[in-house]
Amino acid sequence: MTNIVKVIKPGLSTTIQDLGRARHQIEGFPESGAMDKFEYQLANLLVNNHKNDASLEFVMTGPTLKFECDSFIALTGGQMHAKLNGQRILKNRAIQVDAGSVLECGPMETGNYGYIAFSNGGVVTQPILDSRSTTLRTQMGGIQGRALIAGDNLPIRDSVIMQSLQSRKINWDVETSNFIRFVKGPHWQMFSDEAQKQFTQQSYHVSEQMDRMGYRLNGNPLPVPSKSLLSEGTVFGNIQITRDGSPIILLADRQTTGGYPVIGTVIKADWSKLVQMKINKDFHFIEVDMETAMNALVAHQKILNDNYEKWYQGRYVEPIGPLRRNSIKIERLIKNNL
């Protein structure tokens, strides 16, 4: 049965996201989808969702929500002082939420992006072009293509049971790092030796011009190739060097094509680190080969797979998700008898 979570406070810029609409890039629509795919998938995994179920993605400050039905949720992303009915709750674990509860996420202390997954299939708004992801620039998907506002009703399915609830937690924090690894981009050779050297030796930091389309980095400008290029398709993590010599890293809501030379592409294992990188924190780029990138990706994905196995195997271990309605009744009986 579909039920409602009401938005009391929307947070800074909270949107509905799943894995996006990659298949519609052929028609020129941005891929969109979760910025931090690792934290997004972790949240879904914690509440036993499918990997493409839609969650709420928030930036810096999360929303305040009121539940009109029973659910299980998981919060992932940076450190935050989230509260459920005034009680502090922890991220990275499945949490039982009863109808009538109020969840306050508040500001995040580490990282930039956070996720709230709801059990039994996530937020079930109408998909547009095979995805529930919100693309703010094209006003597509989510709720009327915009960020949440107070008073919005989020449709979710109520759920009363969660397999191996007690063990659904993981000791984890958003990854931080002072380096980001990349593989050479299609236009690497167009840059002078001097530019290539400078790119990998100097430090950069994320500027305030950062959003779901991309992060502009600050550093000493690189000498740029004079030849202009025809536009080519873009992928998440492409590091473009603009005419003024500064890099922009293309992210979830990027345009499908771009005409700036791409010096490199951030390896997938480092996407989460990059997306969660705080403004003004210094880092540098390290070039790796494709084999290293692939090994790093498999190792990174293993963190999720191992936990999936653990929780899946644990589904027959007592207590098998208590039937909540009955347990509430039993609790009341006991209370009344005391």
Binding site: A22, R23, Q25, I26, E232, G233
Partner: peptide
């Protein structure tokens, strides 16, 4: 080529972007 990759649902292809002289193909490793 890009339309065939999408329409024939070539195994593992998740998205394609045709541009002037390039064809970008995303896939599931």
């Amino acid at each position: 080529v890009s339309q065939k990759l999408i329409e024939e649902e070539t195994a593992g292809v998740t998205g394609v972007i045709p541009a002037y002289h390039t064809l970008t193909v995303n896939f599931d490793y």
